[in-house]
Design a protein around this nucleic acid. Sequence first.
DNA 1: CATTGTTCGTTTGTTGGACAATTGAAATAT
DNA 2: ATATTTCAATTGTCCAACAAACGAACAATG
Lengths: 254, 254
Amino acid sequence: MAFARLAILPTYKVVSDTIEREILAGRLTAGDILPTETELADQFGVTRHTVREGIRILEQSGLVRREAGRRLYVAEPHYGDLAPRLSRAMVMQRVTFRELWEVSMDLEPSAAAHAAVRIDADRLAQLRANVMATEQALAAGASIIPLDVAFHILVAEAAGNRALLLAREPVTQLFYPALERLFTHPKTASVGPRRLIEAHRRIVDALADGDATLAREWMRKHMVDFRRGYDTAGLDLDDALEATAAPPAAPARR
Amino acid sequence: MAFARLAILPTYKVVSDTIEREILAGRLTAGDILPTETELADQFGVTRHTVREGIRILEQSGLVRREAGRRLYVAEPHYGDLAPRLSRAMVMQRVTFRELWEVSMDLEPSAAAHAAVRIDADRLAQLRANVMATEQALAAGASIIPLDVAFHILVAEAAGNRALLLAREPVTQLFYPALERLFTHPKTASVGPRRLIEAHRRIVDALADGDATLAREWMRKHMVDFRRGYDTAGLDLDDALEATAAPPAAPARR
DNA sequence: CATTGTTCGTTTGTTGGACAATTGAAATAT
DNA sequence: ATATTTCAATTGTCCAACAAACGAACAATG
């Protein structure tokens, strides 16, 4: 007979796995305060430093959080925590604009369609405010890109599907630099933003009417426009995306 | 006037950010061996412990890797590394079957359509082999679920879109337990697997013909079947998914 | 009375030094 | 040339300590 290879894990990994298991099993739930590092070290029978390495791992997956210098508590991982890492992975694999666009072509119209039947008054108001803010930003010569990104997030949130949110977030984060190039390019800077706002307005109207088909269709057109602008600007669909600093990464602690 | 909040980062975070920046800027590329922990500590002017905590963070994002006890090297993050964390996030947010299904309803048919125009002979052969293996597993009374999961991954890979792969992976990983319940349930166990294999076969045929429309349509039917089976089995679409151990997580070191 | 300064115990962040276990490669023996 | 033994390098873990920051309670200040 032959033995299988032993799975020997470093202690810090065992520490993080153990705490993770408690959280996933529901014995520790969001908001619970974890024991101090010293206590954990005593309980596990390891050094505090080993515990700390384990904690670093848990922090990365968003399962626990700590506000600078304070006690550790259990948290529900938010998609905003995980998306940046996925985005970076895509950048490193030199994902192209075409690939991103294809995925968005599936998810964004679908998000709009779902939103049409599930949206509530509150979020509808937020969307209207977003469209107005976009118009004002354009008139004032400010960048409309953050508002555009926010618009699509609002629609996705209105769709009431958290799996959809998680799937689309890393993709749309990467559109940021592409949009930047688009709206500063001489060939597309003049007409692009107007068509964008027009599309956004039509989508909001369709959502307000609860018209899923129309919402889907306008979102689809909006995405096609995006790609056409990319072509018009003479940019290559199959170029790899460039690395970019996380754009909406407002720390906003406290 | 008001001052913005100071961004004070702990040293270990500065360490990980610094190394990360080098990798993202391309000054360190996949395969490069990093300095030893002691050397890094000397260069940064910090303790080895601090460096180690920084390394733990980088390891989590898949930017660096180390196989047990050996030197650290730069790696390209693979979607397989990141997907489990996303899956866990979805479980913790008590994502429902309906949410997953809606996303898959967008991505899977689209993957099939793209695969139809991009698939190569090699992967087509793999798909045919997969369908045969599924038939044999069914005849032998073995579980066909891992083969089903593998089938969908093969199709997605054939679509030649890495953003799509990243977006769908965390979702489909969570289908595993749902499929499990479906194929062991008395009402669906008898006919379900046969319809599944039939659909898989039709999809492969459509891919072989390069017929994107047909491939999309059969994949769509396949997904609808999946949901119908869920209904037939009397399971609630809006129940939260249960936590489950990573199913295909074959460590396979060395 | 609200703001500011002081003190103190607690907890994290960081440092120093140490050592066992493992690895990779060089040196040696077969 | 191949196998074995040695050895230096490197990681994983431990122990001990202290500075820095925080929360709270309380005194001092205007």
